[in-house]
Structures are given as structure tokens and as C-alpha cells.
Amino acid sequence: MSHLNMAQIQELKDVMEEAFGDLVMTYLQDSEQKLKALKKSINANDAKQIADLAHSLKGASANICAENLSALLKKVEDFGRADELNQVPYVFEQIQTEFRCVKTELQQLK
């Protein structure tokens, strides 16, 4: 099963045309940075920061057609908003795995 919504990604490629490669690169760089920051916030138990970063990553991932990743990030955002951080490290593990898959698929698409 693909980690990307393939119908949507085709539409996105049509919109972006030759800039699609740049978009993928930008998304990956930006997301890697934000994931690092998210990890720090989780370690620091900073619920507000966790929620905001997850929110931003969630939106960007949805836009790049990574639906599973976006859904996982929403979980973290919701935990952060509710200040219930117990399960966050566990979900974050899943996010990192999912992100690696998305990255692989996106790089193949370029």
C-alpha cells in the first residue's frame, strides 16, 4: 500500500509542473527540521510547542498527499492541545517510520 495518495499527487504534479522537484525538496528539508524540533519539544514536555509543530507538519503533509503521515501528526497535535503527552513518544516513532517511507516514495517520483 502506498504512503501517498497517488491520484492527488498526479494533480499536484500537474499544478507544479517543473517546480514539483523543488516542492518535494523543500517539503523534505522543512519537515526534517521540524521533526527534529518536535523531538526536542517532546523531550522537553512542551505541549504547546508540540501541538504547533505537529499542526504545521500535518498541513504540509496533507498538501503533499501524505495522508497517513498527516493523520499521525494530527494525533500528536491533539495530544499536545489536550496536554496528554504519555503516548506522544510512541506515536512519534510511527511518524518517523512513516516519514521515511514518504520520503522514499517522493524521491522516486521526482
Binding site: 499536484l12 499544478v15 507544479m16 509542473e17 517546480a19 523543488d22 516542492l23 523543500t26 517539503y27 522543512d30 519537515s31 504545521s56 498541513g59 504540509a60 498538501n63 503533499i64
Partner: peptide
């Protein structure tokens, strides 16, 4: 939009 990749997509749609 603070998210650069989101901004890129929006800009592309609007320019189109």
C-alpha cells in the same frame, strides 16, 4: 503561510 512547501503549492495554483 509560514510553511514554505504549502506556500509553493498555493503560489503555483494562483499563478496558473
Amino acid at each position: 503561510d509560514d510553511n514554505q512547501s504549502d506556500r509553493m503549492i498555493l503560489c503555483a495554483i494562483v499563478k496558473k
